[in-house]
């Protein structure tokens, strides 16, 4: 019973951290669809729910220092940028107007996600479900 309580507490605490990209149904629903294997790459769940919680823990945890090391090495990447980098994926868009709307939605979500400002680091496109184009935008918080 204590194990079940542990899982429930974990789920409820992670739920509060969820940031759902518009149009992506929860993974458990997507997997119930007939063409689930073709849709697994359609939505990025890495920043959502428990995944976001795990990711945040991983990225905010400093690298362990080995006691035998005597020299402190400089970081390879600017830590604040690495810690806040995240990716948002739009639903499939069918027209130029949809694309403008999708970009606005993702930018608004990114701005809401960051405490400071959201900086666009990469923008990409791919063919998604049923041939519709998906917009992929990577941001980091500054």
């Amino acid at each position: 019973m204590s194990a079940l309580l542990y899982v429930l507490v974990l789920l409820l605490s992670a739920y509060g951290l969820s940031v759902q990209a518009e149009g992506c149904e929860p993974a458990v629903d997507m997997l119930e669809s007939n063409d689930a294997v073709n849709r697994m790459s359609e939505c990025d769940y890495s920043d959502k729910g428990l995944n976001g919680w795990f990711k945040a823990r991983t990225e905010n945890t400093p690298e362990p220092m080995h006691t035998s090391q005597t020299a402190v090495l400089p970081p390879v990447v600017d830590p604040p940028v690495l810690a806040a980098k995240f990716e948002l994926i739009s639903v499939g868009v069918k027209s130029a107007l949809d694309l403008v709307q999708a970009r606005f939605t993702l930018v608004a979500q990114a701005a809401e996600h960051c405490d400071g400002v959201a900086v666009l680091s990469e923008e990409a496109y791919r063919q998604g479900h049923q041939g519709h184009t998906q917009l992929i935008m990577s941001f980091y918080c500054r």
């Binding site: 194990a3 429930l8 789920l11 729910g49 795990f54």
Partner: peptide, 27 residues
């Protein structure tokens, strides 16, 4: 069981660092 779940969660954290693993489910 609690220990196993905690260990599994810790494993997922480290696995996530190596590749995109999506944890999902429902109650």
């Amino acid at each position: 069981v609690k220990f196993c779940l905690a260990a599994a969660a810790a494993t997922l954290v480290s696995a996530h660092a190596a590749a995109d693993v999506t944890l999902y489910g429902k109650a």
